[in-house]
Amino acid sequence: MSELVVSGSVIAQALPSGRPTLDPEIKSTVRVTDREARLRWMVDEYIDFVARVLRNAGTPAAEVDDDVQRTFIAAARRLDDVRPGAERSFLLQTALYVAAHARRTVARRREVAAEEAPEQVDAALTPEQLTDQKRARQMLDRVLSEMDGDLRTVFVLYEFEELSMAEIADALSIPRGTVASRLRRARSDFRDRVRALGGM
């Protein structure tokens, strides 16, 4: 197991320029403080983003808090490798990884939940039935869970996080053309499923 090495030079690069030189002992305190401040800032700034990505990537509602913590703990371990300005992108990739893993470990529970799900979509849904936010969320979960995983990821990042196709390509390490074609297919698939829900 590799030890996480707290690299002074990496932190130093993360600091604003022009910081006065400090003796090593004080510098170590500053480093800790800066780490903590940065982490706190990341939590405050991105906790909703992380929770939303996790949820839309398939983490069950009851597991989101746990997965949010996992994501930030992973981020904390790697903080020195996160370029200033790349925090959101790093958290996004970590959250997608965590969500993918969580899907495996809770698969059984989710199957049970699906069996117990009271929603019958035989009858056409009306907008009134969906104004209940909880219900809308359940139906969205259902639609997303039926989508192909690759398409779903691109879909939620584009439609919910409003990432550009270039940003999605970077985050997923796939060619931009692939993002474009997945998005096209995902939108068409999503619309078909929603039309079926609404009985249109």
């Binding site: 590799s2 990496v10 690069q13 990537a57 398939g58 996992r70 703990i73 992973a74 371990r77 790697r78 490798d81 996160v82 370029r83 790349a86 992108s89 790093f90 990739q93 970590t94 997608l96 990884y97 965590v98 969500a99 993918a100 893993h101 899907r103 470990t105 995983g149 690759d150 990821t153 970077d170 985050a171 997923l172 390490s173 796939i174």
Partner: peptide, 20 residues
């Protein structure tokens, strides 16, 4: 049990494995 990504290129956003 939980898996967290532990290795990635230095000084860049890590290329983690996408759910796909």
């Amino acid at each position: 049990q939980i898996a967290t990504p532990a290795e990635a290129p230095k000084m860049s956003a890590p290329k983690l494995v996408a759910p796909s």
